[in-house]
Every structure is written in C-alpha cells, then in structure tokens.
Design a protein around this nucleic acid. Structure first.
Lengths: 234, 234
DNA sequence: TCCTGTCCTTACATTTACCTTACATTTTTG
DNA sequence: CAAAAATGTAAGGTAAATGTAAGGACAGGA
C-alpha cells in the first residue's frame, strides 16, 4: 500500500480552518508525503501555485473568498493536476452535485484518515502511473512499483518491510537517516524496541542490493548516526 | 493512439445531469472524437438510437425514467454495440452485481478524465479490431471480450467478478496492485470489508488460469503489498 | 593489551498474512 | 418458483516474513 516516488509529489492543501489544515497535513506526513504547502484563501492558493507548481491539490469547497470550484477552474486553466475536494455534510449539496464531476474525487467531512489516504493514493497512482522510474544504485536498481531489485539482470523480490525501509531511505537519498526515523517509517506508531529488528532487515536488504553485502557501497552505515542510501544523481 | 478511425465512431452519451454531459462530451472532443450524440432520458436515448445507430454508448446507471440496465437490454435486443456504465459513488449498486462482462465496463463517479479516455479507447479497440488480442500469461491466455480463459485448448468461462478483478490486474500488468485497489475495482463503491471475499476470488481465478493453483506463476502474491499479474511482454 | 560500545551476522522462534476449504447466501436463469 | 450459478463468509492450517537473541568483529580509548 505504501511509499514510493508518489510520496515526493508536491501537494497543495487549501482550507480556512487551521485545525483541519494541521490534521490533514499530519496525516499526509505520517504516510510519508514530503512536499506539502498550505493556503487559507483562494488568493493565497493562487500565489502558492504559481511558484510551487503543485502536482496534486486538496481543496475545501467553502473558502472565505469564494468556492473551491472557482479556484479549481482558475488553476486548471493554467496548470493541470488532479484535485480532491473536501466538503461538509449538507453543504451546498445542489451546487456540489453538478460540479463534483469536474473533480477527480471528493470526501465528505468528517472522514476517516484511512479513507483519505486511500483516496489520495488512488488518485496519485492513477494519475501518474505511467511513470515508473528505476532507482539506480551502485551495483543494482530498485523498482518500487514491482517491489523488486534488479542485480546483474536478476530480479529479486522485496518484502513489505524491506520495501518500506528502502522507500524511507530513498526519500532521503544521499542524506543520513537515523535509526529512529527508519523505525518510525517501518513501524509507525510506537517505533521503539525494533532497533535490532531493523538491523536484521538492513542485512537482508544488503543481501539483495549489494554485490558484497559485508562491504556495502549502496546502503552504508554512518556509525553513531544512521544509514545512508547512495542513489545515482542525488 | 490518435487520429484513428476509432475516433470516427458514433457515440451515444446518456445522463440526466447536463453538467456531466457537457464535461464528458468535451473530454471526448479534446481526445479527437467527432460524432457524439447525447440524451437525458431512456426515451430520448431510444429515439436517438434508431436514427443515429451508435457504435458505442456511455450510460448513466440512474436515469429519470428507469435504469441504464433496462436501456441496455432494450438497445441490445435490436442493436449490438459495447456499453460503458457510469455510476455514482454511494448510489444503490445492488443492481450492479453480475455484469461488466464482455466488451462492457463501468466507472464510478467521480473519475479521472484520463482514465475515462483510457477505458473508452480500450473498449473501442477491443470491439472494433478484427482480431481480438489474447492476453498471454505463463500457462494460459485470457480473452477479455469473451470473458474466458484458454488453458490447454480448453475454454473456461470467467464470472463477472473474476473478469473485473483480472481486468484491474491487467491494467497494471507487471506492477503490484494493492488489495485496496483491487477491492475498489471489483466493488467500486465502499470497497472496504471485502478482503476475504477477494481472496476467495483470487483462488478461483487461479484455478482457471494456473496450471498448479497452489504454486501460482501468473497471478502471484507479494505478501503485505498485494498481487501482481505476469503478462508476456510487460 | 584489555575494555567498551556499536554494529554485524547467524540461527532460530514467533507471528502474521495469506491459503484453502466447505458451506451459507444471494442472484440469475429457465 | 425451482435449480443452478455466482458470490460471500468463516475457520483452521501453513509457510513466508518478521522478530529475537547470542556470539563475533572491529574501532577507539585508557
């Protein structure tokens, strides 16, 4: 279900309630999304769009300076990215029925975080599914969509945990990722007490991606700090 | 993909919401389709059909004077062309079970324009190409038009659910498809809570396409991530 | 040299996700 | 309406994935 290059997509989040902004942003964050910008008004959203060039937008229907639909029209005429609407139950139902069709999806507040993530991931997957970049490491390549490593022409499958650990490393390619951060990416809430387990996974990952797992060159240890994934061009 | 003789096909579009008619029509237009007629009711649709002789229809499931299925039955008894259904999320889809076979397909509103085009083009290609391409798997072949599997020269029919699950896998051939995504493809609206049922279907599909269903080679499990369909050349 | 701490490596135990089956229920068909 | 087919449900079984733990290697410091 989780984590790959789609998590890198630039997301624009527009709502006038700060609490909701915070909530959605943190839901997205926990699922691994990196690039989130927020706005409280249409004016702000347009400004942000211009310099940020989002690849996906979550818009509230009711905004202080107009409706989310107006905003979508403005944006779509210039940019082209998928949109998900948030609407409160009973809010402007009639208007919504008609216009909802221009949206790529919508959710009625209040919603379950799980469902929000499900819909967002579904939209992104469908919108950007043709791109399937192979990640090039020294000595092998990773195909996140297929959850496999290609080494010397051999296709080696990745397990779920390996996949999510590698994804977390890839999101920070070239930078050091702490043990704690990796545990959190792999085990989510209560990521404590898995340090040893993480090590076992690191070993297994190295067996798959490294030519010589005991002298790693792609997934290297920075003693006392964490691990680092070496990706071509990062 | 563009400037095809398929773009000349006469298309009938039936929905009671003018907004949706406009939107779909303009999506189709932009993709190069020339001959589009619209109708708002079953009565209208039947009338248009008689003199226009459509070669493809997009029907809303809910219409003011009856269901899209009734319309399809009426039309199919006289004419024979492929149909794509549109259904709204949350719309009573009891009636929905047990179809989506053959050239037909359906989409849940709201949908991505891109995906609508993708499916329409796929249906047209399948329906109006002289040969219908068999999808080659290791050990068997799938004929989506006829909804059957050919294994060792034997023709084994597919049920509706099996067909739509296989179609979803085929659309992402070679890539991992999550349980959630498969549930959405098979049950559309409210795809939660069918995980177990999905498993039973997977088993039945394997019985049809695999030589040894207990050691699958075509529809393989990636534990914790989803399923993957292996198609020759993908 | 020994000690200390960090990480590696391995073998093994445990768990979880999935398989498999039989059966219940619903839907379609004649 | 009855029979057949399709679909959904549930429970016990299993193997692959994951977690655990113990011994080893290695570096740095005293």
């Amino acid at each position: 279900m989780n984590s790959d290059y789609l998590k890198q997509k630039r997301i624009l989040l527009v709502d006038d309630e700060p609490e909701l902004l915070d909530m959605v942003a943190s839901i997205l964050n926990e699922d691994g999304f990196q690039n989130i910008k927020t706005a409280k008004t249409i004016a702000e959203a347009v400004a942000v769009s211009k310099e940020y060039a989002p690849e996906f937008a979550i818009l509230d229907v009711m905004l202080p300076d107009g409706s989310g639909f107006d905003l979508m029209k403005q944006l779509k005429s210039t940019f082209d990215y998928p949109v998900l609407f948030l609407t409160a139950r009973g809010e402007d139902d009639d208007k919504f029925r008609g216009f909802s069709l221009g949206a790529d999806d919508y959710m009625v507040k209040p919603f379950l975080p799980k469902e929000l993530l499900f819909r967002i991931n579904a939209i992104l997957r469908r919108s950007y599914k043709d791109e399937n970049p192979l990640v090039k490491l020294p000595g092998s390549e990773i195909d996140f969509d297929r959850a496999e490593v290609i080494k010397n022409g051999k296709h080696i499958p990745l397990t779920a945990k390996e996949h999510s650990i590698l994804a977390a490393l890839y999101r920070n390619a070239g930078r050091i990722v702490t043990i704690d951060a990796l545990c959190e990416a792999a085990w989510g809430d209560n990521p404590f007490g898995y340090e040893n387990s993480l090590m076992a996974h690191i070993r297994r990952i190295r067996e798959k991606i490294e030519t010589d797992p005991s002298s790693p060159v792609a997934l290297i240890t920075i003693k006392g700090l964490g691990y680092k994934l070496i990706v071509e061009g990062k």
